[in-house]
Amino acid sequence: MQVESPLSARLTPQRTRAGVELLVARGDAQGVFSGATKADADATAASTAAQAAPVRAGLKTWIPQYNQDVAGAQQALSFLGDLAERLQGLRTALGSKLAQLSSDAEDGTAPAGEAAALDKLLGDFARRWRERPQSTMQSLDGNLSYGRRGHARQPFRVAGLDAKALQGGSRETLFFSVGGAGRQPIPVAIDPSVPLPEQVQRMDFALAPTGVRAALDGQGQLQFDVAETQWPSVRDSLAIQGGGVRYPAGQMHLARPETVPRAVRPETWSVHSRSAMRQTLQAVLEAQSRVYAAQQQVRAALSRAASQITPAVEGGEDDGTLGISAWVADFSAQFAQRGEQSGYQFVSAVAPALIGISRERVVALLGATIV
């Protein structure tokens, strides 16, 4: 899928009631300032007099990562739409086959032809599911929870380190090592006399610099998570040294963390018996609910992104709305403040918008007047 970037919007000069021409981004609802070629500028400037319109738009605030976030959300929404179609196909096929099977086949196998067709549907869905990290820019995790681009997390547990272990036994200091040899171990004090939430909070604070986070899940159990891109390294290198209470003393021991089972696990689905098909159908229904919830979540994120763009304003100081002079002053101040901070993120966000904008063009726009 080709994602249309908000920075692809073309710039066209528009006259305002205050006699100033602004470059107004014309594009989708999430359009933002973008650059235009000199040819575009000359062509649009020539037709401005015949197309005057009191419309102006822009950013409410300066948001360098806005474009990436919107692109990630659009790709996530496209991926979810594809999943929804595939799940509906599975649901229809499973329901049809279950209705055709006679009651005496309850514990038997499905006919070979029927099983092969369903196996193909399952295989296609599983392959598409494995493409989730790349297809969504890692904005959707394995439970279809949406976050910003690259923020998908992998939850995991560590054997011997759960809520019961933190609340029982004597005091002990555990040393965590993430990333292999040469890393400075991180000490975490375990004190059963301290309330469990506070202990977990301390552990989370201590491990945060490594990218590993700790929290209590919905069942009150200790659970860790890390960025999916970092998971292979953490899985193979996480080591813990204790004082002989919860973990052995003397040297680091590989913790061998285990992933928390995901809500959507097509690798466990089967269609080779009626009971298996029923279980798979139930799993498909649950996956559909999660896909729908994720779609709503992503659409809400896109809606919030759209609200960060100032809508076109027809009024001015005389009707209580933000006048052009105040708007320009406010935006210029924000832009200048960001520019003083410098940094790669700012430059990468601004550079595309400056392509084709010359000093002569800016002077011409500032000197324009309404006839």
Rank of each mutant, 00 (worst) to 15 (best):
G343L: 02
F335Y: 10
M277E: 03
S270L: 14
D318A: 10
S270M: 12
Q308S: 00
A326M: 03
S303L: 12
V298C: 00
A300I: 04
Q297K: 01
S332L: 01
S275H: 15
G320E: 10
V260M: 08
T280F: 01
S273R: 04
V271R: 08
A333W: 14
G343W: 09
L302E: 00
R278I: 12
A336T: 01
L285M: 13
Q341E: 12
Q288R: 11
R299K: 03
L302Q: 00
W327N: 13
R265W: 07
A305G: 08
A301H: 02
E317W: 14
A276P: 00
V328M: 02
T259V: 15
V313R: 15
D319W: 05
R262T: 06
P266V: 02
W269F: 04
P311E: 12
Y344I: 14
V313G: 10
T310C: 14
H272S: 03
D319A: 06
S325Y: 13
V284D: 08
V260L: 07
V271Q: 02
A294Y: 06
S273H: 06
T321P: 09
V328I: 01
L281Y: 12
L285N: 02
P266I: 01
V264C: 05
G339C: 09
A301I: 09
G316N: 10
V264Q: 02
W327F: 10
M277Q: 00
A326N: 03
V313T: 15
H272F: 07
Q296T: 11
A300M: 00
R338V: 02
V264D: 06
Q334V: 10
G316K: 11
S273A: 01
D318Y: 09
A306Y: 07
G315S: 02
D318Q: 12
A287F: 07
A276W: 01
R290Q: 05
R262Q: 05
A300D: 12
Q345M: 10
S332Q: 06
P311F: 09
R262S: 04
A333F: 13
S303C: 13
T310L: 13
G315W: 07
H272V: 09
L322M: 04
V328G: 12
L322P: 10
F331I: 14
V328S: 08
A301P: 00
A333M: 14
R304I: 06
Q288L: 02
Q295A: 03
W269D: 05
A336E: 00
F335K: 09
D330E: 15
D319F: 09
A336D: 04
A263G: 13
E340M: 13
